[in-house]
Write a protein that binds this DNA or RNA. Structure first.
Lengths: 190, 190
DNA sequence: CACGCGATGGGACTGAGTCTCATCGCGTAG
DNA sequence: CTACGCGATGAGACTCAGTCCCATCGCGTG
């Protein structure tokens, strides 16, 4: 048995992605995922808190990346500049090699309310980290919260474009464009 | 039996709120809620899609209220002015009589990740309605999405203050203040 | 070689959510 | 007055998510 084969977590993630694509999210059981990964059902829940989480790994890395980027910005940086730095930091994860994987994952997430719900929670956690970090840098409320939401929206928009097969630019480039477009749009609201 | 007593849905909501306060969300079963409401477990799930939903009724009313407020704004209104109208429309639901109830409800929601997650989904639905309505009024992207997020944040901030026992103002007043503060904060970002 | 530690297997258990069928109460056509 | 239909309910079986406990296994260490 694969009992002591390494990378149990990665095996589970891969198995889950495959099964979700083959049978759909609903028709895939946690036990089924574990079985394909060569593990028992109880081991699945040792690695992931619930069935949804198997698609949302590595969120903590994200949050730290973003918070560190804000904290490490030059002292004279404006909030918007710090957001730019945060988006650049996130781009490290969104390499071209991971685009195909991200696309497959997103297709599944988009097709299910439960998963979209979890995605919102993850994004909320990210913007929460952002606003905390901004407040730590002296940005007052409600500007910190506003800036964090702005970055969250830029992130969502950028991700959608990055996923798009018609696109061929890197995540950082797109994210910078989206952030800029949002800042520009700010002036058109009043 | 209360089999044919009216307001089954309201009875379930009331019973759920009580039991969540008495035993906590986790220790309360859907069957237990139904029992206190004088119904069977299967009837609980006829009225609510899942256990969480019993705390989030009437969201569709919200969404329609907001969308109609945007659609019915005067032709020369700016996006921000439309958002103000939308927040006013929502305030109709947040009357002083409902404050105590909203407080109890929110205390439960705040104490549980599952419920916070669902709350995010509801808020996302609301901002989705907002941006759709704005686009229908000719507001281009990404300004429509940005404005919707702005209103969502104003709503969250306003709700938090409205819930606060130290506050005695009406929801509409607070929401207007929050919206204004966010618009002002916009200028401090660059 | 004995021991401990961490990861796993396996199975029992609770509760969410689905589904089906029988039942009940009320309104209505005849 | 009766028969019928309709909508809401009760009841129970069923699947699966998620929890929990305990035995087992492999590896490193003294």
């Amino acid at each position: 048995m694969g009992r002591w084969e390494p990378n149990a977590r990665e095996r589970l993630e891969r198995a889950a992605l495959e099964l979700f694509e083959e049978r759909g999210y609903d028709s895939t059981t946690a036990a089924g995922i574990a079985e394909r990964a060569g593990l028992a059902k109880s081991s699945f829940f040792r690695h992931f808190a619930d069935k949804r989480e198997v698609l949302f790994g590595g969120q903590e890395v994200f949050n730290r990346l973003v918070a560190d980027a804000i904290t490490g910005s030059p002292p004279e940086a404006t909030p918007i500049e710090m957001l730019g730095a945060a988006l650049d930091a996130v781009a490290v994860v969104f390499t071209d090699e991971r685009r195909a994987l991200a696309r497959r994952r997103q297709a599944i997430v988009a097709g299910h309310d439960d998963l979209r719900e979890r995605e919102l929670l993850k994004l909320a956690a990210l913007t929460g980290c952002l606003s905390d970090a901004l407040r730590g840098r002296g940005v007052p409320d409600p500007a910190a919260g506003l800036a964090a939401e702005l970055a969250g929206l830029a992130f969502r928009n950028a991700f959608a474009r990055w996923i798009d097969p018609a696109n061929d630019q890197g995540f950082a480039t797109i994210a910078r464009q989206e952030l800029k477009a949002l800042v520009a749009a700010t002036a058109t609201l009043t």
